[in-house]
């Protein structure tokens, strides 16, 4: 299938991008890696009249730490995270995620910010962004604002990015000492949408108690969801098998998946719990605490 006809603009600056987006309003979509948008257009699930291609904006392709945050630009591709020494050494949650998005060829084009803006219910980055307490920087002609990921993910395929706006970057707080994360996903085959997915990010204090907990699940609702009940259970507690089981059960209770040929509602709810458990065990294991399996 071919996409419906559209008008193509290749932007050469952020200002030009914003001007084009302002001019075309709701008719326009930003084209970054295109790995979600182009298939959606081919299936006629999306029919933007105007595409503003930002692939030439090399200034939006970066991974940099500044002000206690890791900033990932709008044109930073998944493969850049997968091969980054900084990500491998300090951001295991992001390293895990970047290695599980779609397939290795798709990751050479797809972008982190583009995936967040697409906000597919089964997308990977929304789950990780919730667990990692990310923020999105959004710019329009009159200025820049920063939106917490919880407010950014509005509904399936809908985000806080409004007409005339460009998501410039996503920022992940740099992990404090004794912090690790993990992303877990079940898929029928490489490149398929997740059957279920989960992310966890845990900080331990010197006594081994949890002082920071981020837990989220994917493919279990209209978009990635924070498992607040699990986070509250974990906060202040010492990791035990029972605690992890309780956090996993909180994910099972929250999960509201749709049955399809990847699995029944019952199976997917269970997998949300299983994967939260695995993500917690892996994250805490990375901090040297074993014996939770």
């Amino acid at each position: 299938m071919f996409p419906a006809p559209f008008e193509y603009h290749r932007a050469t600056s952020i200002d030009e991008t914003l001007a084009l987006l302002a001019k075309h309003g709701g008719d326009a979509r930003v084209l970054a890696g295109g790995q979600s948008l182009i298939p959606a257009m081919r299936f006629r699930l999306a029919r933007p009249a105007v595409l503003v291609d930002i692939n030439a904006l090399h200034e939006l392709s970066y991974l940099r730490e500044e002000g206690g945050m890791l900033a990932i630009g709008a044109m930073t591709r998944d493969a850049a995270l997968e091969t980054s020494a900084l990500i491998a050494s300090k951001y295991p949650l992001l390293a895990d995620t970047s290695a599980l998005v779609a397939d290795p060829v798709v990751r050479q084009s797809g972008t982190v910010v583009g995936s967040l803006c697409h906000n597919d219910p089964a997308g990977d980055w929304g789950v990780t962004a919730l667990a990692g307490r990310a923020q999105i920087v959004i710019r329009n002609a009159s200025g820049t604002r920063t939106v917490a990921i919880d407010d950014f993910l509005v509904d399936s395929f809908t985000t806080a990015v409004g007409e005339g706006e460009l998501a410039l970057e996503v920022r992940f707080p740099t992990p404090p000492p004794r912090t690790a994360g993990s992303y877990q996903k079940i898929e029928r085959k490489v490149g398929d949408f997740a059957t279920a997915s989960a992310a966890a990010r845990i900080t331990l204090d010197a006594d081994g108690a949890i002082t920071g907990a981020g837990v989220a699940i994917g493919a279990a609702g209209p978009h990635a969801m924070r498992v607040r009940d699990a986070e509250q259970l974990l906060q202040g507690a010492k990791p035990t098998k029972e605690l992890i089981r309780a956090a996993a059960d909180a994910a099972r209770a929250l999960a509201d998946p749709v049955a399809d040929n990847r699995g029944s509602v019952e199976f997917k709810k269970d997998m949300a719990g299983v994967l939260v458990g695995r993500a917690l065990i892996a994250a805490i294991g990375r901090l040297g605490v074993e014996g939770l399996r």
């Binding site: 182009i38 798709v106 084009s109």
Partner: peptide, 8 residues
């Protein structure tokens, strides 16, 4: 490497 069915 790019999948040329998913690039204009």
């Amino acid at each position: 490497a790019v999948k040329s069915c998913t690039m204009f």
